[in-house]
Simulated assay, not measured.
Amino acid sequence: MDAIHGLARFAMNNREQVSYPEVSEKGFVFEAIQMGHPLIPADTRVCNDVSFTGQPKVMVVTGANMAGKSTFLRTLAVNLLLAMNGAPVVARFFRFSPVHIMSSINIRDSLSHKASYFYSELLRIREIIDYVKACPQTLVVLDEILRGTNTKDKQAGSLGLLEKLMAMKATVVIATHDLTIGELDKKHPEIVINHCFEVELEGDQLVFDYQLKKGVSQKLNASFLMRQMGVID
């Protein structure tokens, strides 16, 4: 009852920002217009349109540091959870197919379990694979996976994992700095779609608009930030 009451208060307090979603029974469908994160205040929230359907499907989200990739993943997953619980969502329009959700976000190492960051990542990824095998109707949300290893292994491992999930007919949304992941659409044009968040440089300031765009990101900002903070010359 407490949970239902909380959802009712959310609906009442956000009547001007929310809508009630439509349920689709036609395979996998995720369509949203002006979708935003419910925990970001309405006066600062940036909303985006997103649409992807079918299985398998992989949405690759590239972009610079702080451009909005991780927030977008959370926005998508939180609104889908709200929808599947019968609550309104922060969107002008929202249509979805009920799915299981598995994610690899904010993985941590563990001294008590003697697990390094990379090993913790692998354990979570294996758990996701086992889950998808048992429940193919699963949305997999991955945020910058395999950060605990070198660039070459990270690239090969990420591509291999996505190929495996595609073979298992999974639906995947992955945020990554690795622009080569975006090249998967050349090999799987009917499955892989690319979106990105870009950054603009105005004078000596980075400007983020947090707007989701089509294609692979063309702009990086890590070295600029390091110079601006005096970390490198």
Rank of each mutant, 00 (worst) to 15 (best):
208 F>N: 03
48 N>C: 06
104 S>C: 13
196 C>I: 11
90 V>M: 04
88 P>N: 05
217 S>G: 09
110 S>L: 00
11 A>F: 01
217 S>Q: 02
19 S>T: 15
186 K>V: 02
222 A>D: 11
130 D>F: 02
225 L>K: 15
200 E>Q: 14
38 P>E: 08
22 E>V: 13
194 N>T: 10
76 L>N: 01
142 L>S: 02
189 P>A: 06
123 L>V: 15
70 S>Y: 04
3 A>F: 14
192 V>K: 08
42 A>D: 12
54 G>C: 09
154 K>N: 13
165 L>T: 11
5 H>S: 10
96 F>L: 05
154 K>F: 06
63 G>Q: 03
61 V>E: 00
173 V>P: 10
56 P>D: 12
164 K>D: 12
128 I>E: 09
122 L>G: 01
78 V>H: 02
138 T>N: 02
78 V>P: 00
201 L>E: 12
137 Q>D: 15
124 R>K: 15
38 P>G: 05
45 R>H: 04
95 R>G: 00
30 F>M: 11
192 V>C: 08
57 K>H: 09
138 T>K: 10
92 R>I: 01
193 I>N: 10
33 I>F: 06
126 R>I: 04
231 V>I: 15
136 P>Y: 11
85 N>T: 09
9 R>Y: 05
117 Y>L: 15
115 A>M: 12
66 M>L: 08
15 R>T: 02
49 D>G: 07
26 K>P: 04
90 V>Q: 00
45 R>N: 13
127 E>F: 10
195 H>F: 06
4 I>C: 09
21 P>Y: 04
210 Y>G: 06
136 P>D: 10
160 G>S: 12
32 A>S: 03
102 M>L: 14
73 L>T: 00
18 V>F: 01
45 R>I: 09
174 I>Y: 06
123 L>Y: 07
114 K>I: 03
150 N>W: 08
126 R>K: 13
32 A>F: 05
156 A>C: 11
177 H>P: 03
163 E>D: 15
33 I>D: 14
37 H>R: 12
176 T>Y: 11
81 L>K: 10
209 D>Q: 03
